[in-house]
C-alpha cells in the first residue's frame, strides 16, 4: 500500500467512514462551491471614503508609510519625492504591470527605471497591488509575468501603488476579487498579503524592522 492509500484509509478508519457517503460528499462539495464568509468584522464595512481612511490608519499602525495621491499622473513625481526624502538614489526597478507602464514617467525625468524581477541588487522596488484590505491595512500582491514576487521581498525599500477603488473592507471580499479575476478555485502562483515592513522580535522580544524583507514599505493610494 502506498503512503496515500495508507494515510487516507487510516483517517477513514478512525472516522468510521468509507469516503463514499453521499451526504458527506455533498456537504464538502457545497462548502467548496459556496465558500461561506463566516464572521466579518464590522470595522471595515464602511462607505468608500471612510474605508480608504481606515486602510490608511491601519497601514500606519502596521508601520508602513502611506500617502494619498489624487491621480495616477502624479505617481512618478510622488515616488521621486519619496526617494529624495529618504536620501536614496533616483533609481528603481518595477514590474511591467500595464498600470505602472502607463504612468507618465517623463514627469520625473531624474528617475532611472529598469523593469523585471530582481536578483537582490536593487535598493528600491515598485509594484502595483491587486487590492488593499482596510481592516488591517494589508496590501494584496498577485504574482504573474508582469508582477514578479521578488520585487516584494528583496529590495530594501518597497513602494506599492494601490488604486483607492481596490480597497476592500475585509479579506473575504479581496478573495472575491481574486476569484472574479482568475476563476473559481484558481489562484495566481503567489498571493502575498503584506501588512507593514519586515520585522523580527526574535532577540529578547524587541521589535526590529528590516529582518529579511524590505526595511520600509511605502504605499501610494491613488484616487
Amino acid at each position: 500500500m502506498n503512503g496515500r492509500e495508507a494515510v487516507l484509509s487510516r483517517v477513514r478508519q478512525s472516522l468510521g467512514v468509507t469516503g463514499k457517503e453521499e451526504s458527506r460528499r455533498r456537504e464538502v462539495a457545497e462548502r467548496l462551491a459556496d465558500v461561506p464568509r463566516g464572521v466579518i468584522p464590522a470595522r471595515g464595512q464602511l462607505p468608500d471614503e471612510e474605508r480608504i481612511a481606515l486602510f490608511m490608519k491601519q497601514a500606519d499602525k502596521a508601520l508602513a508609510t502611506i500617502e494619498r495621491v489624487p491621480s495616477a499622473e502624479l505617481v512618478p513625481e510622488a515616488i521621486a519625492m519619496y526617494l529624495r526624502s529618504k536620501n536614496l538614489p533616483a533609481e528603481l526597478k518595477r514590474g511591467e504591470d500595464p498600470r505602472l507602464a502607463a504612468l507618465p514617467w517623463e514627469r520625473a525625468p531624474q528617475l532611472a527605471i529598469s523593469t523585471g524581477p530582481t536578483g537582490g541588487r536593487d535598493l528600491v522596488g515598485v509594484s502595483h497591488a491587486g487590492a488593499g484590505v482596510a481592516e488591517t491595512g494589508t496590501i494584496v500582491m498577485l504574482s504573474g509575468p508582469e508582477n514578479p514576487s521578488t520585487l516584494n521581498f528583496l529590495p530594501d525599500y518597497h513602494i506599492v501603488v494601490l488604486s483607492a477603488g481596490d480597497i476592500t473592507g475585509d479579506y473575504e471580499t479581496a478573495f472575491d476579487k481574486v476569484r472574479a479575476q482568475y476563476g473559481a478555485g484558481v489562484m495566481p502562483r503567489t498571493v502575498n498579503f503584506i501588512t507593514g515592513p519586515s520585522r523580527s522580535g526574535d532577540i529578547e522580544q524587541k521589535l526590529l524592522l528590516g529582518a529579511h524583507g524590505p526595511r520600509s514599505l511605502h504605499i501610494l493610494v491613488v484616487g
Binding site: A62, G116, P117, T138, S143, G144, P145, P148, S149, T150, M187, P188, R189, T190, V191, N192, F193, I194, T195, G196, P197, S198, R199, G213
Partner: peptide
C-alpha cells in the same frame, strides 16, 4: 506582516 498563498510552480511567462 507576510501571509503568503502559494499555488503550484511558476506559471508560463512568470519571471520568478
Amino acid at each position: 506582516v507576510y501571509t503568503t498563498f502559494s499555488t503550484g510552480p511558476r506559471r508560463p511567462g512568470d519571471v520568478d
